[in-house]
Amino acid sequence: MKKHNYLFPAMVLFSLISIASVAQTAAKNATRNDLLLSLGYFNTNNQTQYLSAKAKTKIDGKFQMVSGISLSFYISNDSSAANLLGKAVTDAKGNAYLLIPPAAQSEWKKSVKQSFVAVFAASNLYDETKANVQIAKAKLKIDTAADKKITVTALELKDTSWVPVKGVELKVAVKRMGGDLNVSETQTYTTDSTGTISAEFKRDSLAGDAKGNLVLIAKVEDNDTYGNFSAEQTVPWGIKTEYLSAYDKRTLFARRGHSPIWLEIMAYSIIVAVWGVLIYLIGQMRKIKALGA
């Protein structure tokens, strides 16, 4: 009997410890989700280079963007302080951007290929997380002919010279306010053995600036080898648009003294009519006074 007396409390104690351990693990899992980082390289118009990182996590089986976390960006795979390019905080969509600073030029020039890494330092919510990207240095060159033919050449840096690359998929478009508009029905082009593609500009009657200029853009997106890069060129293929100022016109939103004529006629007629009646009545009052004199 005595043996049973010890066994029961021991079982209860063991059960409590097990439950507490499971609960603790569950609590740890509930609060510490995995952070998923992805990193991309961008080169806009062969000029502006920047890195873009996206941070997300999976909560209740759904991906959610992680905002407000600080990421450190490094050039090369070595995340030592000497290679630090800078830090950026993710926005509401979980994106963080960092322009590659001129100080990184010497490291950039060391090789025809380049690696970058984005690092999130461990916090209460997430463990330390890294994302890498390696790119081969490449650029695009746009040539145009008078008959609205566009030739785009994709070039890769090999040692010290730029050589054409075959099999690169790219888009050719016109920059518009709401996004890029393809120059023809063809969505994408793939470079041939000479590294070029030919596209035809079929967007007639497109409004340009005051001189009729449009900006052509050729871009490579999410390429596994080269990342994202683009080139732009201004061409006079649009329709000249003239800014028509309404500043001196008579409108409802114009400044003082420039109200529409119909409004002036209406308003002044009413004012003259009503105040005419009032002045007439004041005259009648004088008449009443005269009659009583």
Binding site: Q284, M285, K287, I288, L291, G292
Partner: peptide, 17 residues
Amino acid sequence: GSFWKNTPGQISISNKA
């Protein structure tokens, strides 16, 4: 109102007004 003498002329003008 000292000028008001309640004359028919005054009443007529006043009513009209």
